[in-house]
């Protein structure tokens, strides 16, 4: 991988750096350039990471001076036993399962369609991308307003055609779908873009060749495009699984705060509530560690599967 990389500096004594170099080892320069990034990562990413794991296995003492007591798996057990846990776990599964067709599969035909339009598809592409630029706060606020039974545009319009619609956000079963739909809408354009990038790398000659052999649209899609899109699809799939829980935090917090009756909470939101609302640091940390363990498995799966898939295609 180093074919195009410049070799290590060979410093002539006539340059100022050359003179300095004779007193310092050659890795001084890169070390200095790297230092800010590494120090910041150590302080704000890696140290907190280790600290969280430690917090998950101790009973953290609020009294300064009194040491924290190692309690092993107690925090983990407490989290699982929490009345909110079951609802959060089920909802998490629903979030993930519902997100996959909406966020991973649905963008594919859209991307293929836009790809078939060529440059004329750019307008569509740009419009679809706009939700990526606005914040989840903005989207949540607007949804809150549009769905509001008093004066919101959606109930008003539906009433005009004779449908009386309650506020889905106050329905324990429907609320989660609002969040799911909202988050799918928001990432659609972004995922379409990622698939378009994947499609762009499909060699046209193969398509031409298949056409000459008399292949139909469907055959080209099934036998050439779909397999070649596999790495992209996998990438989007794993990204969706990893990010859905985080991304839905804002809509949940603004729209329902986990309710109604825990209808929208998920494991990430639960951890947030444990840590920040109940101030149960041990449980919050334990819940976080469990969540992270699950994510690690998925990340590991991504790289294993991705490598294997890519090998098949090459």
């Amino acid at each position: 991988m180093g074919a195009s990389r410049p070799e290590a500096l060979v410093l002539s004594p006539s340059t100022e750096e050359g003179r300095r170099a004779r007193r310092f080892p050659p890795w001084t320069a890169p070390a200095l350039y790297l230092a800010p990034m590494v120090v910041l990562l150590a302080l704000f990413t890696y140290w907190p990471l280790i600290h969280t794991v430690w917090l998950s296995v101790v009973k953290w003492s609020l009294v300064p001076g009194r040491p924290s007591v190692f309690v092993g798996a107690d925090n983990f057990a407490a989290v699982v036993a929490s009345p909110l846990f079951e609802a959060a776990a089920w909802n998490t599964a629903l979030y993930l399962v519902a997100s996959i067709p909406l966020k991973v599969i649905l963008p594919i035909p859209i991307a293929v369609f836009l790809w078939s339009l060529g440059p004329r598809g750019h307008v569509y592409r740009t419009v679809l991308f706009l939700p990526t630029l606005i914040s989840f706060v903005v989207v949540s606020v607007v949804v809150l307003w549009l769905l509001n039974p008093m004066g919101g545009h959606v109930p008003t319009l539906l009433r005009m055609v004779g449908i009386a619609m309650g506020n889905p956000l106050t329905d324990a079963h429907a609320a989660i779908w609002v969040v799911i739909g909202l988050s799918a809408w928001k990432v659609m354009g972004f995922h379409v873009l990622i698939y378009l990038a994947g499609l762009a790398s499909i060699p046209r000659d193969n398509i031409e060749a298949m056409r000459i052999d008399g292949a139909s649209d469907w055959q080209v899609l099934r036998d050439l495009i779909w397999p070649l899109l596999a790495p992209t699809t996998l990438f989007v799939l794993i990204s969706t699984i990893i990010f859905t829980l985080q991304q839905t935090f804002t809509p949940i917090d603004i729209l329902t705060e986990g309710g109604p009756q825990n209808g929208t909470t998920n494991l990430f939101y639960l951890v947030y509530q444990l840590a920040m609302r109940s101030f149960d640091v041990g449980q919050g940390a334990a819940g976080t560690v469990m969540l992270f363990a699950g994510l690690l498995v998925l990340i590991w799966a991504k790289f294993r599967l991705l490598d294997r898939r890519v090998e098949y295609d090459r």
């Binding site: 990562l41 917090l55 840590a275 640091v281 919050g284 992270f292």
Partner: peptide, 18 residues
């Protein structure tokens, strides 16, 4: 190591950072 820092989800660091 630097790249792995990218993969650490914010949930995992939020408590100690707070």
């Amino acid at each position: 190591l630097v790249l792995a820092g990218m993969m650490v989800p914010p949930q995992l660091t939020m408590i100690p950072l707070y």
